[in-house]
Design a binder for these strands. Structure first.
Lengths: 182, 182
DNA sequence: ACAACCATGTAAGTAGTTACATGATTTA
DNA sequence: TAAATCATGTAACTACTTACATGGTTGT
């Protein structure tokens, strides 16, 4: 499980409230790790119990905003986790299951869904390209900036890979349709 | 959720026991959908309750083997599901989280883990290549065989993609290490 | 003063994992 | 006849999702 460690990393970069973390996740982490705000709040509460982070609220204020900051134990835990090898996440590709179903059921046509996916991956790629221009155009990037740029580039490569395999399958499937018609 | 539909597809190809399905999942589906035997047994029981499949056991036998076969309602459900568009599965890439942590913590070195992953992806690729020779060398494949071959090829492309991006990151990280040393 | 959004949470449910139990059949 | 493996399951737990609740703050 990586969510607490993703949150520790985010808090190491910048102390934040749960709400801010949710926004930052959506903006800068959602292309390789996704979490809803409910997950984030629950996880932050657990992490505070573990003594990994502490929350500060403004005294004598009606505001409910809690700002979390990382504690030494949290940094140690992040270090420990980063050094421990983790398993390769098993692939879960619905389209492959559907393709296999399609090979058994003649009535199904997956090409509309595939074209919709194609459009979605292309749109994501466009967003990532804009992010790249916006955040990684500095002439002398720091090591941290270069690594974050690398992460974004990997996200872009992933989208391009998805586009490529869907296009490939669409091509092959069209050829097969000729066969099916005969 | 695709597990019941993956199971329906497998049962459409061949009526089987839960144990056989678990083995077939490991062999021919694990590179795009994974399930443990506990999940499979639980799901089969639910599907029987829904009237999608039925189980047959050998009468007057002490054997507990139940052979499941798909019912018309199950085939209809599979068809309905295959025609309904599904969401793109959100990406979950632990290495990206670790990379981002590494950019904040100087003590971490991810290259051993990355090299281990590289080896694992290469090994999977080797297995898939053997499967390809073993199952898809027939001169005149049927439409079904061609689609299953296509699924395997996509799995191979996925492994190659993983190998490529990990190699890319390793290269860039080594360059950065020079920077870090200076 | 009303709407829109900020901010944190509870509750219930689904999906998936891990550990263990149990009895049948096959093999050495 | 003991060990391995076949075959099906239960129980408890963790991760994640979906729907809803609640009250504060900001803008018009």
């Amino acid at each position: 499980m990586s969510l607490p460690h993703a949150l520790l990393t985010a808090l190491l970069e910048q102390s934040s409230s749960g709400f801010d973390l949710a926004k930052r996740f959506d903006r800068s982490m959602s292309y390789y790790w996704h979490a809803t705000h409910q997950q984030i709040y629950r996880e932050l509460a657990k992490m505070e119990q573990h003594g990994w982070i502490e929350s500060l609220s403004i005294p004598n204020s009606k505001s409910r905003i809690k700002t979390y900051q990382i504690l030494p134990a949290g940094q140690a835990e992040l270090l420990r986790w980063a050094q421990t090898p983790s398993e390769v996440a098993p692939l879960r590709e619905v389209l492959m299951v559907k393709l296999r179903a399609e090979s058994m059921l003649d009535e199904v046509d997956l090409s509309p869904e595939m074209r919709a996916r194609l459009a979605e991956h292309q749109q994501r790629l466009t967003v990532y390209r804009q992010l790249e221009v916006q955040y990684f155009s500095t002439p002398q990037p720091t090591r941290q900036q270069r690594i974050q740029h690398l992460i974004l580039q990997t996200g872009m490569q992933h989208e391009q890979h998805c586009i490529a395999w869907i296009e490939h399958i669409l091509t092959i499937l069209n050829e097969s349709d000729l066969d099916r018609a005969i």
